[in-house]
Amino acid sequence: MKSIDKPKVLQIKDIRNENEFIKTFVFEYPLNSKPGQFVMLWLPEMDEKPFSTSYDDGKEFWITVFKVGKFTEKLFDLKVGDQVGIRGPYGNGFKLKVNQHLVMVGGGCGSAPLFSTLREAKEKNCKVDFVLGARTSDLLLFQKRIKDFDNIDLHVCTDDGSEGEKGFTTDVLKRILDEKIVDMILSCGPEVMMKKVSEIAFEKSVKAQLSLERYMKCGFGICGNCTLDPTGLRVCKDGPIFDNEILKNVADFGAYHRDSEGKKEWFGACKVR
């Protein structure tokens, strides 16, 4: 189905407070996004930013947003019935096959697009180990909703040990890979975490798909702001989901991203969560 390329104005049908920093916005619209795809969300006279869909059943879709700056603060002020513009869906999405054993590794708000793949995983009779991590128990996303799916082993971990295991998602991932035969790892979260996931996947010779986030203008592969070195692949069009084999040759991955003027910004020593 063709994407909407001129913003389509939609009313917010529902807003759910997931925790202090994360809200889910519900829209009643047949967007038909695939898991891992994203939309450009427009706040008139403010800006427009990319967000993955966290659910889409063909009748309604959700986006789940972490409050990180001015744009998301303004979004958090909106009420049910308020209007925003939506373009999309854009990007490639996660690729699932039938009867696979999957490990999903979600850090913080990165669990949102992974949650959206659970319906398809169920339809394809996949077995899922879901590693849900956050800094602290308050920030664990979709814990109950994930639990409600059958055929899922949920592994909760927090940096401070306030819920589940004390430690990082990557430690849990390693253990699972030691214990089980896994076909595919899917991951979304802080890039420093995903870099580690990528390394572990290579170490254990397990395939992986990772979801990248970059500053975007167009969302449909023409502006060039989200391109990766040295291949020139576009996160918005060739991604945002990349096979680990491709990321092996991407200099930016886990190292730097680019601002709206195209200048490199290096990832800080940001803590894996």
């Binding site: 390329d5 913003p7 800006d47 930013k49 203008k217 003027e261 200048k263």
Partner: peptide, 25 residues
């Protein structure tokens, strides 16, 4: 030089419009 905030561009079947505003580092 800073460009404009988004939306900076979009397209339809017939035309494309943009105001990126010449951002460059």
């Amino acid at each position: 030089h800073k460009g404009h905030p988004n939306p900076t561009m979009f397209g339809t079947e017939h035309y494309f419009i943009n105001a990126v505003g010449l951002p460059d580092a």
